[in-house]
Design a protein around this nucleic acid. Structure first.
Length: 376
RNA sequence: GGGGGUGUCGCAUAGUGGCUAUUGCAGCAGACUGUAAAUCUGUCACCGGAAGGUAUCGUUGGUUCGAGUCCAUCCACCCCCA
């Protein structure tokens, strides 16, 4: 696996490149739809390709380990085979669940003792175990096992946690080196920068992560409730330290505006549940602004969901119809809304790529931001 | 014509003498950032930004310190018998 940096924008730090994997290329900047449990909720694999135009999707170590479990995963021949997806996959390590399930787990130097959200049973995740499971899942890109610290986070806690994440990282790489891919394609381990919102910690972490000379690097622990400015400040700081010739993945971010801002800072890869989850909750991101499709104002609006949209669903279906489906709790409504939002996100990063290559990115970004933030 | 029953905030419900009338649905809005989320929160008689104020259990009257609750009356609807 390797990354080709094709072009850097003349007026910002935005970059366009291609990450080559054994399951094909990923053009960056890219948005990766989240498919936690072996499915991007509400969207089947053919629609992900044709309508959404996804190039790579996420899976989650914790969720897939809980269900269906690794016995079935291996018997299926890995996640690609299991879900019939021949493009790249990235798996999160379970590090985010250290944060999101923090009420039911216990962190020690050895690892994290999780209590299953399904049946309450106890499971120990260590860096080694996380990598082993990610070998069994077989994603192209696998993530280091880290602690995603909450916000706010006391300095001392953030510092100790970061150092532990660094120690865990060494164990992740060690286990990578002593194990082999199971399904005939290569896997790359991305380390993760932590350090909460503390500049000195972020610098220290980014420098530590950069030493590993990984194929790609990730920035974690952001967009967990801190002000937007902090996301940008930390991202900028870290991007200036991480190697230029390697892709940078900002985990869990974000809104369409977040994504354009962070592309401008030199981020190449993004993932976020927002387009998919919020779609199910009736929020649509469009090229003209944000729509809450459940609002009464759309009741008799028979115009397309997004006249500038790229997905078929955007022009086949009216706002009034989608509102009716969502309000009626019809599953087709969730599907259409999710496809729309994801297609919009993929359109956004595709357009960003094109604008970077022609050095028009900054101008275009400034035009887009007010529209992306506007409530319709 | 005779007998019986029922009327509670859009709908459905709880409430059979005692503080601000219950709950669900629908409605209206908001939240959501490496997915414990097709979820959660607020609001939902009227006025008010809020504090708060004013009402109200089909109608009108009555009993009572106190009535959605008891009594009478009328109105509406339902059922049964002719």
């Amino acid at each position: 696996m390797h990354f080709d940096l094709l072009h850097t924008d003349s007026k910002s730090k935005a970059r366009a490149g291609v990450l080559h994997t054994d399951h094909g290329p990923v053009e960056t900047p890219i948005f990766m739809p989240v498919g936690t449990a072996g499915t991007v909720k509400g969207v089947h694999q053919e629609e992900l390709k044709s309508e959404v135009q996804a190039q790579i999707i996420l899976g989650n170590t914790y969720h897939l380990y809980m269900r269906p479990g690794m016995e079935i995963m291996e018997a299926a021949g890995g996640l690609h085979q299991f879900i019939n997806w021949d493009k790249p996959i990235l798996t999160d390590s379970g590090g985010y669940q250290v944060y999101s399930l923090s009420g039911s787990n216990k962190i020690t130097e050895e690892g994290v003792r999780f209590q299953s959200h399904i049946n309450g049973s106890y499971h120990l995740f260590t860096p080694e175990r996380s990598i082993e499971i990610q070998r069994q899942i077989g994603a192209d890109i696998i993530m280091a096992f880290d602690e995603c610290t909450p916000y706010p986070c006391a300095y001392d806690y953030a510092k100790n946690s970061m150092h532990m994440t660094h120690r865990w990282l060494k164990r992740c790489f060690a286990y990578m080196n002593e194990s082999q891919p199971l399904y005939g394609h290569n896997q790359a381990l991305f380390p993760i920068v932590q350090g909460s919102v503390y500049r000195d910690l972020r610098v220290e972490s980014a420098e530590e992560i950069a030493k590993h000379d990984a194929i790609g690097n990730a920035i974690g622990g952001l967009s967990v409730g801190e002000p937007e400015e902090e996301i940008y400040e930390m991202t900028d700081l870290v991007c200036n330290i991480l190697p230029k010739d390697k892709p940078r993945y900002l985990m869990g971010v974000g809104t369409p505006a977040n994504i354009l801002e962070c592309i401008a800072l030199g981020v190449d890869m993004f993932d976020c549940v927002m387009p998919s989850r919020n779609a199910r909750h009736g929020m649509l991101f469009t090229s003209e602004g944000i729509i809450n499709i459940k609002n009464q104002k759309w009741e008799k609006d028979f115009s397309p969901i997004d006249p500038n949209g790229v997905a078929g669903t955007d022009t086949f279906h009216s706002k009034a119809y989608l509102r009716h489906l969502i309000i009626s709790k019809e599953s087709l409504g969730l599907q259409i809304a999710t496809i729309h939002n994801l297609a919009f996100y993929l359109w956004l990063v595709k357009t960003a790529r094109e604008k970077i290559k022609t050095n028009e990115f900054s101008t275009w970004k400034d035009e887009m931001l007010p529209k992306l933030r506007r409530r319709l």
